[in-house]
C-alpha cells in the first residue's frame, strides 16, 4: 500500500507564453503509515505535486500508482481515490460555503454517500479532533476567526476518514500557538490511527519536529529525499535553494567548529540539549527520551479522543 510516482512531469499551459514546467521527472514512493514532510521555496512545485496524489491534476507525462494501481488507466475509480487520499488545500477556509460549520463538515461524508446520522457522527469526531469548541458547531463558518475557520475546513477533510492525509501549508498565516495546536493534532492522529501524513511546509523547524522523512523540492525537481538528519547535513546546499536548516543545526555546527565534540546531526532542541550536556561531561538530561515518551503518549490540549472514539476511527 503506497503512493508511487514514476518519472512524473507536469507542464502548465503548454505551448503558450505562460508555459511552465512545474514538475520535472519526479520519482517518489510514500509507503503507508509514514509522516512525510515536503519542503521547498515558493514556486518550487509543492502544491502542484500534491494535487497529483488524489488525481486533481493529471500528469503531462509519467505514472502514478496508488496501491500498485496506475491511476491514469482508463476506468480507474477516481472517486475512490479521492475518498482515500484527503487533500487540505492552502487556505482551506476559503472553501467553506454552508450555512453552519456542522453542515459544511458533513459535505465530504455526504458526497461519499453516507447516511445523515453517520455524516453527523463523523463530523462530530472530526470537529472534536481539530479542537473547535462546541459552541461554534452551529454558527456560520463566515463568522469564525481565521484560525477557527482553518480548523473547521480541516475537519471537513478529516470527516471523510482518508487513509492518506495531505496538508498544504496548513499553518500559513497562523500564530505560533495555532500552528503548534494544528500540527500536534495531526501528529496525534498519525500516531493513534497510523494514517499516512504528507505535510507541506516551508518551516524547517515544523518539519524536523514531526516528519520521518523529508522531500526537498527545488525548481520542480526532487533535491533530497531522506531522513531529516541526512537532509539537514546538506545545510549549505539548502541555503542555496532558498531554505535553511533548523537553528539547532547551525548551533551544533558552530559548537563543533569551536572544538566541542557534539553530534552535529541532531534536529530538535531537546536532542541538542542532551548532546551538549554529554559533550560537557555532565549527566544525560534524558530530554530526548522524555520528549519521545511525551510525543508518544501525547494527548493534545484540545480534542483528545476517548478510547471508544479512537476504536471507531481505526
Amino acid at each position: 500500500m503506497s503512493i508511487r510516482l514514476e518519472h512524473l512531469n507536469y507542464i502548465y499551459s503548454p505551448k503558450t507564453a505562460y508555459e511552465k514546467h512545474a514538475l520535472k521527472d519526479i520519482c517518489l514512493e510514500i509507503p503507508d503509515g509514514e509522516f512525510v514532510g515536503i519542503i521547498g521555496h515558493t514556486g518550487s512545485g509543492k502544491s502542484t505535486l500534491i494535487q497529483h496524489f488524489n488525481g486533481l491534476i493529471k500528469a503531462t507525462d509519467g505514472k502514478l500508482f496508488y496501491n500498485e494501481e496506475n491511476i491514469y488507466e482508463p476506468g480507474y475509480n477516481m472517486k475512490n481515490l479521492r475518498n482515500e487520499v484527503g487533500l487540505v488545500f492552502q487556505y482551506p477556509e476559503h472553501q467553506l460555503f454552508e450555512i453552519d460549520v456542522m453542515t459544511d463538515v458533513c459535505f465530504g461524508p455526504k458526497n461519499q454517500g453516507l447516511s445523515t446520522e453517520e455524516c453527523k457522527e463523523r463530523a462530530l469526531i472530526a470537529l472534536e479532533l481539530v479542537g473547535l469548541k462546541e459552541k461554534y458547531y452551529h454558527s456560520s463558518p463566515f463568522e469564525l476567526s481565521g484560525g477557527q475557520k482553518r480548523r473547521a475546513a480541516i475537519a471537513g477533510v478529516l470527516a471523510m476518514r482518508p487513509k492518506v492525509l495531505v496538508l498544504d501549508e496548513p499553518t500559513a498565516g497562523l500564530d505560533p500557538k495555532g500552528r503548534d495546536d494544528i500540527l500536534d493534532q495531526v501528529a496525534y492522529l498519525h500516531k493513534q490511527t497510523g494514517m499516512t501524513v504528507i505535510l507541506v511546509s516551508h518551516s524547517m523547524e515544523d518539519i524536523a519536529r514531526y516528519a520521518d522523512r523529508i522531500i526537498v523540492m527545488n525548481h520542480g525537481e526532487v533535491m533530497y529525499n531522506d531522513a531529516p538528519r541526512a537532509v539537514f547535513a546538506h545545510y549549505r546546499e539548502l541555503e542555496q535553494a532558498g531554505l535553511a536548516a533548523p537553528q539547532v543545526t547551525y548551533i551544533m555546527h558552530d559548537l563543533k567548529e569551536r572544538g566541542l565534540p557534539v553530534d552535529i546531526s541532531v534536529t530538535t532542541v531537546s536532542e541538542a540539549a542532551d548532546e551538549i550536556m554529554k559533550a560537557l561531561g555532565g549527566k544525560d538530561l534524558g530530554n530526548t527520551a522524555a520528549e519521545n515518551r511525551a510525543l508518544r503518549n501525547r494527548t493534545p490540549e484540545a480534542g483528545a479522543l476517548s478510547n471508544k472514539t479512537l476504536e471507531k476511527i481505526r
Partner: peptide, 29 residues
C-alpha cells in the same frame, strides 16, 4: 473547484437540477 472535488463533489454527472445544485459549493466561496 479542486478543493470541493477533493471533498468528493461531482460537477459532471446528474441532471440539470443536480448540476445546478452542485454549483453552490463553488459560487458561495
Amino acid at each position: 473547484m479542486k478543493a470541493q472535488q477533493a471533498r468528493g463533489a461531482d460537477f459532471e454527472s446528474g441532471n440539470i437540477m443536480q448540476r445546478a445544485k452542485a454549483m453552490i459549493p463553488i459560487l458561495v466561496p
